[in-house]
Amino acid sequence: MRNMIFAAALATLIPISGQAHFLLPYAAETQIAKPGDVTLAVVFWHPFENGHVMDMQAPEAFYMIHNGEKTDLIDRLEAAVFKGAQNEGAAFRATLPVKRSGDYVLVTQPAPYYETSEDKYIQQLTKVVFNRNQLPTDWADPVGLPTEIVPLVKPYNVVVGSTFTGQVLREGQPAAGIEIEVEYVAATPDLGSFAATPPTAKPLPGGSLVVVSDMNGYFSFGIPKAGWWGFAALGSGPVTEHEGKELSQDAVFWINAFDLE
C-alpha cells in the first residue's frame, strides 16, 4: 500500500510564473556538532534568485520541540535588517539552544504579511529540523499546526539524487490536491554581515517549480543539488481570510541535502 501511495505522489513538475515567497529560518548547518546557541537568520525572502526581501513583523509564535517537549523561543528573536540584492527588509536574528542529543524542530508562526501586488495576506507556518549527535527523535512527528508538512525522509541529511517525500496536513488530516512550490536557497544568508551572498544557481526560465499532493496528501521531489530546499504548500491551511482580505495560509518545510562523497 505504501509503495502505491509513493507512486501516486510522484507528481509532474509544473513550472509556474511569478516569484516564490519563502520564510527561511536559516543556520549554517542543520547537524550541530556541540552544545550551545546556534545562530539563526529569520528572513521572508526570495532566496533562489536573491530577490525582494519582505518586511517581517514580530512572529506570533517561535518555538522548538525536542524529545516531545515544547520550548518557547520568542524572547530569542532580535529585530534586524537583512540586505538582499534588490533591497533591505525587516527580519530577525535568533538563537536556537542546543544541549542534549536529538532533534530540534524549530517552528515559526509569522504574522500575516500583506502582499500589495496580489491584494492578499500570506502566512507561512514554517518548520525546519536541526539535529545533534545523529540521534533521531522528533523529525517525523506532527507538531499540531493548523497546516504543516510532515516529512517521510529524515530532513537534515538528504542525499542528492534521492527523493524527498512529505505529507501535507490540514488540521491533522491529509490535504489533497495542494500545490507545493519548491525553492532552492541559491543565495545563502551571511550570518555575520546579515546580507545575502551571490546566488550559486539560476532559477529555471519557466518559473517556480511545483508539485501537487495526491489524494492522501503525499508529494515527492527528486533532489538535484546540495544545499537547502524548501517546500511551501500554498493555501493548505484552514484560515482563508484576514482583516477582510484573502489569506493564503501555507505550510513550509525546509531540508538540507548533501552530495554523497
Rank of each mutant, 00 (worst) to 15 (best):
M4H: 14
I5P: 04
A8R: 10
L10K: 13
A11V: 02
I14P: 03
P15L: 04
S17P: 02
F22S: 14
T30S: 12
I32N: 05
A33M: 09
A33S: 13
K34P: 06
P35K: 03
P35D: 09
T39G: 11
V43M: 06
W45G: 00
N50S: 15
Q57I: 07
A58E: 11
P59N: 08
A61I: 04
M64D: 14
H66A: 09
H66V: 08
N67M: 12
G68I: 03
G68H: 04
D72C: 01
L73E: 07
I74M: 12
R76L: 10
L77V: 02
A79M: 08
V81Q: 14
F82D: 01
A90Y: 06
A91W: 06
T95F: 06
L96M: 06
L96A: 02
R100L: 13
Y104Q: 06
V107K: 05
T108P: 06
T108F: 08
P110E: 10
P110M: 06
Y114H: 09
T116H: 14
T116I: 13
K120E: 14
Q124E: 14
Q124W: 03
V129Y: 01
R132I: 07
Q134A: 15
Q134N: 13
D138P: 00
W139M: 07
D141A: 13
D141W: 11
P142F: 09
G144M: 02
T147L: 05
I149T: 00
P151A: 10
V153N: 08
P155Y: 05
P155I: 05
N157G: 13
N157W: 15
V160D: 04
G161A: 06
G161W: 04
S162L: 04
T165N: 09
G166H: 03
Q167G: 03
Q167I: 02
P174A: 07
P174L: 04
G177Q: 07
G177N: 07
G177K: 01
I178H: 01
I180N: 07
Y184P: 08
A186Y: 05
A186N: 01
T188A: 15
D190A: 03
S193Q: 10
F194L: 08
A196L: 06
T197I: 03
T200Q: 10
K202D: 13
K202Y: 11
G207Q: 01
S208V: 12
L209H: 08
V210I: 09
M215P: 04
N216E: 15
N216C: 09
G217D: 08
G222R: 13
I223C: 05
I223V: 15
P224V: 06
G227Y: 07
G227W: 05
G230E: 08
A232M: 10
G235Q: 02
S236P: 00
S236D: 03
S236G: 12
S236V: 01
S236A: 11
E241N: 10
E241V: 10
H242F: 14
E243M: 11
E243N: 15
K245E: 13
A251R: 01
F253P: 00
D259G: 13
L260E: 15
E261N: 13
E261Q: 15
